[in-house]
């Protein structure tokens, strides 16, 4: 079964790595069952704690290597929030930092061989994507009242075009959470599936060197993608937040 058959029946399934399984045996997955998702989410918490809390425990004036990484992450996201949303967006910085660090750590943890990538699941990314969408929409109405709707009324366009643009803007607004969450899950899933496919081909002696080289190359790419997708998710969140705080074009 495990030996590669001549007819192309390689015994591997690139999607098997994404299966949700109960951690302590059994088949039933209730909403409270500890699963491999639970384990890797917990490890993400540990990773965030290790980066942001343990390294800074000394509060050194001259930072150690770990502390400078924590400060770098802090400064990076803080500056992003400040640049994109302006001064009044700073109070939402902890929420955005939470999203950024969680996605970053979950993406990187997923790159450990045999691990489970929580951010490759649409259920996970959709919660975050729609969470951001709903929070930002409510915030927009609370902050601006009905004038939040001027986000869809492009006052700089000719009057005749405005209704059409309003429809387009409205559609694009409601597509945001979908694209926001599917972008992340899709990137993660595709990369890991491709890795698995190359790893599967490595079972065949003839193409093993190429396949292994492919695994290395794709792995390098995936490291990049992991960081970039965390960045993209975060900066889009900032952009949506900016729209809620300053809806006027």
């Amino acid at each position: 079964m495990a030996t590669p058959a001549e007819g192309g029946g390689l015994a591997f399934d690139p999607m098997k790595q994404f299966e949700v399984k109960p951690l302590f045996g059994g088949d039933v997955i209730n909403w409270y069952t500890p699963t491999n998702v639970t384990l890797w989410l917990f490890l993400a918490i540990l990773a965030v704690t290790a980066l942001m809390v343990l390294t800074t425990s000394k509060r050194a004036m001259v930072p150690t290597r770990g502390q400078s990484m924590a400060e770098l992450a802090y400064g990076f996201v803080y500056k992003m929030v400040e640049d994109v949303t302006g001064k009044d967006g700073i109070k939402y910085f902890p929420y955005i930092m939470t999203l950024f660090l969680f996605i970053l750590m979950a993406n990187f943890l997923g790159l450990i061989p045999m691990s489970f990538t929580t951010t490759s699941h649409i259920a996970v990314t959709a919660v975050m994507g729609f969470g951001v969408f709903i929070a930002v929409t409510i915030l927009g109405f609370v902050k601006n009242g009905a004038s939040f709707l001027s986000l869809f009324w492009v006052s700089s366009a000719p009057l005749a075009l405005r209704p059409i643009l309003a429809i387009i803007e409205l559609i694009s607004y409601f597509v945001r959470p979908v694209s926001h969450s599917i972008r992340l899950a899709g990137n993660m899933m595709a990369g890991h599936a491709v890795l698995k496919v190359f790893a599967g081909f490595a079972q065949v002696a003839a193409i093993a060197p190429i396949a292994i080289f492919g695994v290395i190359a794709i792995y390098g790419l995936e490291v990049l993608v992991s960081a970039i997708q965390a960045y993209v998710f975060t900066i889009l969140t900032c952009v949506y937040l900016k729209d809620a705080l300053h809806p006027h074009h």
Binding site: W31, V37, T38, F102, V124
Partner: peptide, 11 residues
Amino acid sequence: PNQIFWLVLTL
């Protein structure tokens, strides 16, 4: 439901 529950807890 399982994933969402644990994710919300994690966040």
